[in-house]
Design a binder for these strands. Structure first.
Lengths: 235, 235
DNA sequence: GCAAAAGTGTTAACTGTACACCCATGT
DNA sequence: ACATGGGTGTACAGTTAACACTTTTGC
């Protein structure tokens, strides 16, 4: 209608990279972030990411950006979260941003530069831009998918005992989970494969724990919540 | 790092606007589209949408674009689907596109221009760009949410009998649903409110049907699939 | 009365929670 | 022996699919 040229936008990709980390005692769900050295939002924390380049997809962009700071092979799952477009979300220049959710297994400990850190999502410090909202969206997506998919494969180490997995689920979901029922549910859904190994008990004794691994290493929907399913379709 | 300027992109919003329509006999799930008069993809069908303007969000853009062709008040629900960024998705110029899902109640019959139409999603004609993928994503999202939310409020007329609702669900889900169990499930979840009215039976007789309405007119999660819920939390 | 459509009752299968109880190990 | 933690058995409640059966209408 108008004769004005179509506007063009800076477009950035951002990563909500989550990992359950047990640095000090209890394992906690953490998100990877950088403390900003400069304005805007100097001193606040920002998610990794950067501007999309000319010939790449947004997903290629976030992979490229994260790769420079973290071994990408370490990231076991990645999916698009949502696109944020409030005109004032970047006070310096109009920027549209697409956030991705990335999950890192608990046994990976990639070295990080000084200014980077793993922030506990339960007690986030001040976040730059709309990054706090992105973290919230990412955590919500991950928690939902823990319920009806095998997504935990991307948070768990390659091999684990049920006690380890219980702690991991508890940290990721934000509330206590019982190992007994966790094992039953995951076993019924075919997610767990026993390795045959046993993890010896600690100083305080106790029966040695069986060691498991996840049957699949890519996302599968293991509990289709579809009520109202097709006629004659079990599950 | 590089001294090159950050690239900027044309950004468009697209709408996957769905409605269950019974124009000819059986109601079918349809998507709103326009037949393209010009290249690229002349003759193929494209979703409604257009370029994002300078001061607006992507959601404001898709609302503005759809508004010019359809009464927006008619659309009972809208949510962001996903952002598509393949560099060659628009052969003319690099364009990043964000798709939105919009739902229109079955009793709305907005007049459309000649070149527009409601395409049955079961037998889509050739679609322009990556719009077929967008329709697929939109239909999948809607079907999933029909299972665990009250999303059907956005597809159903204000008042309806269970027979009407059964046909609507069948068309939207793509398989037959029984009115008996549908009523039981929705009633238990508190989605249905009886109006007290009765719909008189037709020529062929039959008991008059009770008329219902949806208890809520905005999206609610009525069946949280969360297995592994917090200790001592029913439902 | 009979066909048609709506609505109710009942059963069976499955899932997840809670909790009691048994097993294997270190000290 | 006993404390500690892992693992199993079992009962119960909630949900949904399937289908037989009853109710209310038009003809």
């Amino acid at each position: 209608m108008s004769s004005e040229a179509v506007p063009r936008f800076r477009h950035e990709a951002l990563g909500v990279i989550l990992q359950v980390r047990g640095d000090a005692g209890e394992p906690r769900l953490c998100v990877l972030a950088w403390q900003r050295p400069r304005d805007p939002f100097a001193g606040l924390w920002a998610l990794p990411g950067g501007p999309v380049e000319r010939g790449e997809t947004i997903e290629q962009c976030i992979r490229r950006e994260v790769e420079t700071r973290l071994d990408l092979a370490a990231m076991a799952h990645m999916e698009q979260l949502r696109t944020y477009s409030r005109p004032d979300r970047d006070p310096m220049q109009r920027t549209i941003g697409t956030a991705y959710l990335g999950l890192v297994p608990a046994d990976v400990d990639a070295p990080l530069p000084e200014t980077a850190g793993w922030l506990p999502v339960g007690r986030l410090p001040g976040m730059a831009f709309d990054h706090a909202e992105m973290v919230g969206d990412g955590v919500a997506r991950m928690r939902a998918k823990l319920s009806y998919t095998n997504l935990a494969f991307a948070l768990a180490p390659a091999r684990f005992t049920m006690a380890t997995l219980r702690d991991l689920y508890s940290a990721a979901l934000g509330y206590e989970v019982e190992a007994t029922n966790l094992q039953r549910v995951l076993t019924r859904r075919g997610q767990l494969t026993p390795t045959g190994e046993r993890h010896p008990s600690g100083r305080s004794g106790g029966r040695p724990a069986a060691v498991f691994r996840f049957a699949a290493r890519s996302l599968e929907i293991t509990d289709p919540f579809a009520t109202l399913r097709p006629h004659g379709d079990p599950s």
